[in-house]
Design a protein around this nucleic acid. Sequence first.
DNA 1: AGGTAGACCTGGCATT
DNA 2: GGCTGCCAGGTCTACC
Length: 276
Amino acid sequence: MPELPEVHTIVQDLKQSRLIGKKIISTEIFWPKTLAVPTPEIFCQQVQGQSIQNVDRRGKYIIFQLSNQMFLIVHLRMTGRFQFVTSQTPASPYVRIQFNFENGDQLRFHDTRKFGRWYLVSDVEEIIGHLGPEPLLSSFTFELFEDMMKNRKTLLKSLLLDQSFIVGLGNIYVDEALWEAKLHPLIPANQINLKHLKILYHSIKYVLEKGIQARGTTLGPGRTHYYRLDGSKGEHQTLLNVFRKTGHPCPRCGHLIEKLIVAQRSTHICPICQKK
DNA sequence: AGGTAGACCTGGCATT
DNA sequence: GGCTGCCAGGTCTACC
């Protein structure tokens, strides 16, 4: 579900909430497998009495800095989301872990499909050390991207989905970026000429920035979709050009959008704009 | 190296 | 209304 723009939005929401500085008085773990590391007993001991000093993001991971110099790293995977509420808010059967704060505020981790993972560690690199560059930082230059793509025979879509290659893109934003750049998802990465490589570089940044500006993509109602901290939707779904638009006209040329499977994922292209 | 299938889970939908 | 079968935005592991 959540890709870089959605995770970015949630982190901004958390930063602007009253969460920062709050002291954790207790933890409730309803689905222990959500906690990848450490064990529930050790986790509860180590967070007890700590305050949340900061929250940030690396790729699709959310990183909370605690007052004991430890880091809580959370990956939302498909259906994870945070809710910052008071104890008066009715309970949900999909809450997997919950922090209780001093004045009755609660941070609830809601995760319908139970794929989300929490990691409490002293060294963040253990968890996020394998990640590729952040596409929206100024250090992600075209020269770097060109160098990364060199000698890579992998199919374009598979490579862009690989978080150790570049972080932040998922199925939605990859399809949108490839449509922007007029590139077919099955082209081997090292077969793209310099001109198209430049367009792709800018397209990746463009679609992610557009997603952030629209506060993420909420594809539908219900328990399995992305929602912000306060439960509101993103607006980027109204701006999609190809993702889940099978049978609709391409906004650029009018030809019907087609669906294919690439890297075992639904993939949406305009067969006229995006030639192999 | 690069690719593929299966695993992890539950809800939603029958469609393009 | 109830049932079936398939699909879903992410990542990891095993295996060719």
